[in-house]
Design a protein around this nucleic acid. Structure first.
Lengths: 209, 209
DNA sequence: GTCTATACCTCGATAGAC
DNA sequence: GTCTATCGAGGTATAGAC
């Protein structure tokens, strides 16, 4: 005995992924690798399709345009980062926040591809009209807000980071990270991002405490 | 009475520039502006030619290829920078060298176009095969050598910058500059590069002296 | 959901006249 | 030195069959 076809359990309800989902996931992975390696501008959907084992039209069925593919990649990575930073509670404050920079660097050092992707996209998206322009602008804005909240908060382990030059340092920290990540891509083997950030935080501690 | 034509004074000897030189200079200027605004990859020689008031073929007469145009722009700027850094004597050492970072930032703050051009080109040229890949690699190598020489030198105004973490700081400084310049392009009005570098140097001084 | 075929565009570079 | 005309490669996106 069989069910009428319109009663058939759809593939989505079986817990097993549909073919389309697998193609989509593979395409996202390949696109991220390409953007990471050569940037969005130089990436071609033809190459992404080929590496994903699908035709160009097959790829464009899941992502209606090249820009849509980029947006999907960025949104996926942003969700992962948010879970890491805030997933286990409220954002860290005071000196703990500065230490979280070290943790973030350590995490990023295990994800060189994502670092490269972000650096390249940030650089490209500076020009208005770039598909990722709005995304990058929003990303930096939220980081800046977070830094401001951190610097205004106090804790018991040292003087207030917001004291003399806290406002400046919220920005300096991020710029240090950005510059380091950018150069990390050019000479990956010579640099330990974690060591450099740790040294920077140590300097700040010595100055204020 | 007139001279035979082969005795005529050639235009180059009159002290007045030839037409070709003017076209070439204009093209270099326009190309720099384009690379600064949208990067080398997105720049088109058609647009450069149009803005320079010449046809595409006219432009390609002076620069045989798009890559050659980029090389000419980079070489011109590098010559200017070398004159600023070393033109009036030997490179600064010890703490003076760190202070020279402030001077360099101040100079760059008056040349946003060149900063943008360099940031964009550095980012693009990370991918092997890019026309500026070798140029950027060489540029960073010479900067690194300079930083090492600085950090090894001593002077009387403070403890040796090379002491505990000098090797790290030679690199941190440049990364701070890079990251700052990159972000300066995204939000130019919110940041004073000079203030940030000055604050960074002040921190270093407080730590060591 | 995936394919083939193709329309349509932009761009770098060349050929050759003036 | 500068022009017009054009080639040819490489790219995004669409049409329509299966």
């Amino acid at each position: 005995m069989s069910f009428p076809s319109h009663y058939a359990i759809p593939p989505t309800a079986t817990g097993k992924r549909r073919d389309g989902d697998r193609t989509r996931a593979k395409a996202l992975q390949v696109a991220a690798a390409q953007i990471s390696a050569i940037g969005f501008n130089k990436m071609t959907i033809a190459r992404v399709a080929a590496d994903a084992g699908v035709s160009q039209s097959g790829l464009l069925h899941h992502f209606p345009s090249k820009a849509a593919l980029l947006a999907a990649v960025l949104d996926e990575r942003e969700r992962e980062d948010s879970e890491f930073l805030f997933g286990d509670g409220s954002p860290p404050l005071g000196w703990d926040a500065f230490e979280s920079l070290v943790a973030l660097s350590a995490r990023n050092q295990t994800r060189p591809e994502w670092v490269e992707l972000f650096v390249r996209t940030s650089a490209e998206a500076t020009v208005p009209g770039h598909p990722a322009h709005d995304w990058v602008t929003r990303h930096y804005q939220s980081l800046r807000k977070l830094a401001h909240r951190r610097c205004r908060a106090r804790n018991g382990t040292g003087r207030d980071p917001a004291g003399r030059a806290g406002a400046v340092h919220g920005r300096v920290d991020r710029r240090l990270l950005d510059g380091m990540q950018q150069q990390w891509g050019l000479e990956p083997r010579e640099i330990s991002m974690v060591d450099n950030v740790r040294e920077h935080v140590r300097l700040l501690r010595m100055t204020w405490s």
